[in-house]
Design a protein around this nucleic acid. Structure first.
Lengths: 342, 342
DNA sequence: CTGAAAGCGCTTACAG
DNA sequence: CTGAAAGCGCTTACAG
C-alpha cells in the first residue's frame, strides 16, 4: 500500500484537508505546519495519487496524440518522431503527460480518440497532420473538445492550429530555381488529400505564374510519400519531349527516391536536373549531392502545438481556440540546386 | 456534466451496482436486465470514467515509455518511431494506452519515471534501449515495478527483456564478408556504453577469431550514432597502410556517413570497400549503392515488448518478469557487399 | 440475480 | 489558519 494523504496527516497531527492544502500551495497555511507536513511527506515518501486527483479535479494533465499508421506514412517516421519529441518536451515542462494512441484506419482512429475523450483520459488532443474531411477533426469539433491541429483544415479555417506557411515555402523554393534561370520546373507532390500537398502545389503555381512561366500538367506528379514514388516518377519525367530542368519535391525522402531514379537513368544532379525539397531531413545534407531543402522547424512545430493547446486549456479563454500559429521556414541551399542554367 | 453510472441506473430502474456489473460482464446478471441496461447506456451515450475506475481498481491500463532525448540519438529517430509504433499497436490491441515522457538527461529521465510510477499513472514501463549503469533500470528494479527492457542489462541479466541476438547478428554479418574473401575487416561501432555496441563488437571479434583473421585496433572505431562519425572515420581508415577491404557498421545511418566520406575520397563501394550494417533502415535499399543490412525487426521488437510486459502484469506470474525474448534477425544482402575479393 | 453500504485517495465549500 | 463533511464515479464484499 502506498502512503496516502491520511498517513501524512496522522503523523503530522493535522487533518487531511490541511495536507491537501500544503500540497496545492494554498495561501492561508501557516509556515510552520506547512514545513512540518512537507517534512513528513519527505520522510514517508509520499506521492499524490494522480487518479484520485483527476477524479475530483476533472482534469488529467494529459494530452492525447494520435499516431497515423497507414503504411504509406512509414517514411515520415522522422517527421513524426521529431514532432512528438517537441510535443513531449514542452508538455513535460508544463507538467503534462502525453498519451499516444493509434488506429489502423480512419474509423479506428476515431474510436481511439473517442476512448480518450469520453473516458476522460486527456484534457486535449493534438492532431499530427491535416487531411481533407478528417473525421477526427469532425468529432473533436462537434464535441467541443480542446485540440490543436498541426496544419490547417479547410472546413474549419479558424481552428487552433500550428502550421508552416506552405504556400509561401513552396513559392520560395520555386523562386529559388527560377532565379537560377530555370523555366521548365516540375513538381513531385504527396497524397492529394493532405493539406500540405495542396498548399505547396499552390505556392509552386503562384511562383510560376508570377514569373510568366508555363506549367505543363505532365510536370506534376501526385503520389504517396512512398520511397518508390519519386523513383518511379523519374523515368516518366525524363522521357518527356520537353522535360523539366528542375524539380520541386514535396519531401526529402521522396527526393531520395528521385535521386536514385536519376542515377539509374544516368542523369546527374544538379547539372542535368536541379532539386529542391522540403522538411530538411537530417540525412539530406549527407546525400550526394547534398539536398537543398526548406527547413520547417518540425520540433518547433510540435513544441508550439503543445504550448498553444495547454495555454488554451488552462486559460479557458475560448478565443485561444481559434488561433493560427505560423512557424517560420527557411530554405537551405545545398548542392542539389546549385546549377545556373544559361 | 458527463453521464454517470447513476444516471444509467436510475433510468434503467436498477442500482448502480448492477450497472457496474453489466459493464464488467459479471456472470450472475439476468440477460434481461443486462440488455436493458445496455440499451440505456447506448441511449444516454454513457462512457465509463477511467479515472474513477483506476482509483478503485488500482490499475491504469497504461504503460509508460521514456523517450531518450540526447542529441546524439537524433538519428535513431526512425528506430525509435518504429519501436513505438509496434508498442502502441500491440498495447492498444490489449486495451492499454501508452504514456510517453522524456528527460533531457539521465537525472530527468529518472524523475520522469518516478512521477509516472509513484503517481500511479502507469502499470508498467518499457525502456527503449539498454545502456550501462542505467539509473532508470536501477530505480525500477528496486521498486519492484513491472518493466521490460529492449535489449539487455549486464547487472541484471534476468530482467524481462526483448532483444536481438546481437552477437550472432554481428557474427553473421562478418561471416558474410569473410565468405567473400575479405581478410582485413574493420568495425565502426556506436557509443561504448550501449549494450548493442558491445554485443555487436563481440560478434565481430568471434567471427574474425574463428576464421583465424587478425583484428587490428586501428580498424575499430567507437563513436556516437552521429551522422558525422561514419564520415570522419573514413579519412582515417582509408589512409591506413593496411586498410580494411570491408567494414561492419553499427547502424545504417552511420553507413550513410561512411558512404559519403568514401565518395569524397574517391573510393567506390563495393569495389574498393564492402559494407554491411544493421537495422535495415527503409532508406538503405534506396541508397546508391543499396546497403546490405541486418534486419532486426524493430516493429516486432516493440510489439513483443508490449505484449510480454502486459502479459506479465496481468498474469502476476513473477516468473514472467525474468524472461528473455529473442527476435530473429536476417541479413539482407544488397549491392554494398556484393564484391568478391580474389 | 440484485441492492445498500463502504471505500478508493483526493479536494473544497462551509464553519469556526 | 484549520477541521469535519460531502462528494468525484466507480467497484466489491456482504446480505438477501
Amino acid at each position: 500500500m502506498a502512503v496516502t494523504i491520511k498517513d501524512v496527516a496522522k503523523l503530522a497531527g493535522v487533518s487531511p484537508s490541511t495536507v491537501s492544502r500544503v500540497l496545492s500551495g494554498h495561501p492561508r497555511i501557516s509556515h510552520k505546519t506547512a514545513s512540518k507536513v512537507r517534512d513528513i511527506m519527505q520522510e514517508l515518501g509520499y506521492h499524490p495519487n494522480i487518479m484520485a486527483k483527476s477524479l475530483v479535479s476533472k482534469t488529467t494533465k494529459s494530452i492525447g496524440v494520435i499516431l497515423p499508421k497507414p503504411a504509406e506514412e512509414l517514411f515520415l517516421n522522422t517527421f513524426f518522431m521529431e514532432l512528438i519529441r517537441g510535443i513531449v518536451t514542452q508538455a513535460n515542462r508544463s507538467g503534462y503527460d502525453i498519451v499516444i494512441s493509434s488506429g489502423a484506419n480512419e474509423q479506428e482512429e476515431v474510436n481511439a480518440v473517442q476512448r480518450l475523450v469520453y473516458g476522460g483520459r486527456v484534457d486535449g488532443a493534438i492532431l499530427l497532420y491535416s487531411r481533407q474531411n478528417d473525421p477526427v477533426v469532425e468529432f473533436l469539433y462537434q464535441e467541443n473538445f480542446p485540440f490543436v491541429l498541426v496544419g490547417r483544415n479547410e472546413q474549419y479555417p479558424d481552428l487552433l492550429s500550428v502550421d508552416t506557411n506552405n504556400i509561401q515555402a513552396a513559392y520560395d523554393a520555386t523562386r529559388h530555381l527560377i532565379s537560377f534561370g530555370h523555366e521548365r520546373i516540375g513538381f513531385v507532390s504527396g497524397p492529394k488529400n493532405l493539406m500540405v500537398s495542396k498548399d505547396r502545389l499552390k505556392g509552386y503555381h503562384q511562383a510560376m505564374k508570377e514569373a510568366g512561366l508555363a506549367v505543363k500538367s505532365d510536370w506534376i506528379v501526385e503520389d504517396d510519400f512512398l520511397q518508390e514514388s519519386g523513383y518511379r516518377a523519374m523515368s516518366f519525367f525524363m522521357n518527356l519531349p520537353e522535360r523539366p530542368t528542375a524539380l520541386v519535391v514535396i519531401d526529402d525522402v521522396v527526393s531520395f527516391g528521385v535521386l536514385r531514379g536519376l542515377n539509374e537513368l544516368g542523369f546527374k544532379v544538379p547539372s542535368d536536373l536541379c532539386i529542391v525539397s522540403f522538411n530538411n531531413n537530417p540525412l539530406s545534407e549527407l546525400y550526394s549531392p547534398p539536398l537543398s531543402s526548406v527547413d520547417i522547424g518540425i520540433y518547433h512545430l510540435g513544441y508550439v502545438a503543445s504550448q498553444a493547446l495547454i495555454q488554451a486549456i488552462q486559460d479557458e479563454d475560448k478565443s485561444l481556440f481559434s488561433k493560427r500559429h505560423i512557424i517560420p521556414h527557411r530554405l537551405i541551399v545545398r548542392e542539389s540546386s546549385m546549377h545556373h542554367l544559361s
